[in-house]
Amino acid sequence: MATASASSFISLLLISSLLLASFTEAQKPPVAKGLSWTFYDQSCPKLESIVRKQIQNALKKDIGLAAGLIRIHFHDCFVQGCDGSVLLEGSTSEQNARPNLSLRKEALKFVDDLRARVHKECGRVVSCADILALAARDSVALSGGPNYDLPLGRRDSKTFATVVNLPSPFSNTTVILNDFREKTFNARETVALSGGHTVGLAHCPAFTNRLYPKQDPTLDKTFANNLKKTCPTSDSNNTTVFDIRSPNVFDNKYYVDLMNRQGLLTSDQDLYTDKRTRSIVTSFAVDQSLFFQEFANSMIKMSQLSVLTGKQGEIRAKCSVKNSNNLASVVEDVVEEAWSGII
């Protein structure tokens, strides 16, 4: 994926700073029990500036990292909640489930690198789940999308899910709406979250069912012919961008693509084909500010799905390994517990 120029990033940062004012001044949505808008103000006051700076530097070198981090956060929250379980490694971990095989390895490593920087500054007080949520938020903002505050205080799970059910790229709108409804999202929130596909890449097998053996009639012919050049066979492992208009910028052009029959996945294009969601797609396509507001609110809501707080879970010493598998962290836990008892 092409690297954005320095001037482009400066422009995006200026836009993001203006958006920050509008989104943080608005009335904040409800917060899950145990989370707080000021959770680390005392224990790690530089947390958000550390994460923001590292994301900013990383995206200058590789804008594609933004989509990778956003996707990992979504895949974490939609399985057993926003608990960092997707970050755990292992032969039977969530990372080895079929929907997660294409998660970007560089992005997974980047989260643990962030964790190391944060823990060096503040000690082991910030969870990997919180760091991932902040990384996704900053990836949105620094690639041109809305900025928004996040309630923090998540804890990391000690387990990962044995069954990974995620919305399928082959699903129609009925299935997608049902999948999201189970997570308490209405149609408007569902269409807004789908707008995350305004950045990022997809592998050919995720959409070649629309090309072979018979071409999907909802596909624009020129768009379909170009896809066939990228994916000459149904099992080709090449990749292409979700948004052909502005693939490296988080904006509302994804919805413009859908209106022009240039949605990549079945689950994308059917949002415009289906009468229940067509008007929502259109409203976001013609009003980027509206999309940004809806996306921000939906992301804040998603980031609170089934969170662990208080004494639940743990704060991992390494994001890819639970503490019981890390001798150094076990010793640290004992010391922390004894010290807290003294205090």
Rank of each mutant, 00 (worst) to 15 (best):
V281T: 05
F160L: 04
Q215K: 15
W339A: 12
T266D: 10
F250H: 07
S171C: 07
Q293V: 09
T240F: 00
P45M: 11
Q269S: 05
D274I: 02
F180E: 10
N237H: 02
S85T: 05
S279Q: 15
P29A: 01
T184L: 08
A67N: 02
K109F: 15
N252T: 06
R155D: 07
G64T: 00
E189Y: 03
I70A: 03
K61D: 00
C82N: 00
P169V: 01
E94G: 08
K229C: 04
P99K: 13
A133R: 02
S246M: 07
N186D: 15
N147G: 04
A161S: 07
I244W: 01
D243S: 12
I342C: 12
T277N: 00
L103T: 10
R245A: 12
G341N: 12
D287L: 10
G196Y: 01
L177H: 08
D156W: 02
G90E: 11
Y272R: 03
N100W: 15
R71N: 15
K301T: 04
S320T: 10
K46T: 07
K158E: 07
D274R: 00
S93A: 09
L20D: 12
E189M: 07
V140E: 00
M299F: 15
G84W: 01
V140A: 03
P213K: 09
V330I: 15
A206H: 10
P146Y: 08
Q56T: 13
T92Y: 12
K109A: 04
C231I: 04
C319P: 09
N237I: 13
V79C: 01
A296D: 05
L88N: 08
T282V: 06
R276H: 02
V31N: 10
A224E: 03
S329K: 06
M259L: 06
V163P: 12
R245P: 08
K322H: 07
P169C: 06
P167G: 11
R316K: 13
L132P: 01
D62S: 03
L142Q: 00
R124A: 02
R278M: 13
G200S: 09
I280E: 12
L177G: 07
T266W: 10
R115H: 01
T240D: 04
H203I: 07
M259S: 06
A136K: 13
V256F: 12
C77D: 03
A21Y: 10
L327T: 10
G153R: 01
L166K: 09
H197V: 02
Y40L: 01
N297W: 08
F223N: 11
L265R: 03
L150F: 09
Y255I: 03
G313W: 06
S43K: 15
P213W: 11
Q215C: 09
L88E: 14
A26T: 03
A192Y: 07
Y212M: 11
H75Q: 11
D220Q: 09
H119R: 12
G153P: 06
V307W: 00
Q215M: 09
F78D: 15
Q54E: 04
L193Y: 15
D76K: 00
N147K: 14
S306D: 06
F223P: 15
A133Q: 11
T208R: 14
D274W: 03
D156K: 05
R154K: 03
